[in-house]
Amino acid sequence: MPSRAERITDILLAILAGLVFIVLYAPLLISTLFSIVEVKRGQIQWETATLVWYGRLWENQSILDAIRSTLAVGVISVTLAAVLAVILALYVEWEGAIGRRLIELVVYLPFLLPPIVTGLALLVFFSGLGLDRNLLTVTIGHTIFVLAVLYRLVLTRLQTLPKSLVEASADLGASRWQTLRHVLWPHLRSAIATGAILAFTLSFDETLITVFLAGDQMTLPLRLWAMMRVGFTAEINALVTIVLVISIGLTILVGMRLQSDEVREE
């Protein structure tokens, strides 16, 4: 039986954890709430509860465009980053690799630096090259930004692969491509999928780097930003809620996949 003091400690900890959760999530709930009801003179007008603002979003062409851009940037940059991550991880794990530390630094740095620095650096780089800023530059920026996440997950998974499996494959007559396809890929694919979801979540929400690189193009976070400057409307709250639900959903998915990987490895 836990003693009285232990029980009190448990209760206090539970209360504290509850408070932290409320502080963290209450603003999010308020956004969601305000996307459904109206507030007049500090009073919630429950009778005005409606989902009409969500419907309005689908009639707003600029928002639909922003969603399309965000998805396109996310899918393309995650795909590029995944390919790059696999190539880099394979190279770094290869026994003859040189410049391992440099590669890791180059991969991790854009992710670890403040986004404002990464964004500004990319902006200077692109304008130096004379490249117009548009969704292409945004895609390149996002690729560089999310590469670290994919690389880390792929590398970690690759390191759990016994070297003897690769040797066994070669020993049995498989070329490097055949080994990649029949041994490495089945081992890596779930890590790549997890990394891709996580990277997509990051790309989906990414704002600061995007601000520097987007030119006159709009992704969803930029559209939201622009709308907020005009004023806080129920439409904005509806959009925030959608972004939130998608982000949280993807994050939970990643968490579940990482957990099930751990279970499998045990």
Binding site: P162, S164, L165, E167, A168, S169, A170, D171, L172, G173, A174, S175, H182, V183, P186, H187
Partner: peptide, 20 residues
């Protein structure tokens, strides 16, 4: 000659069976 071209096959100490 690379391993995959040699007419030899190996039984590895940890067996190295493909788990999937």
């Amino acid at each position: 000659m690379p391993a995959h071209q040699r007419p030899f096959n190996t039984v590895f100490q940890d067996y190295a069976l493909f788990p999937h």
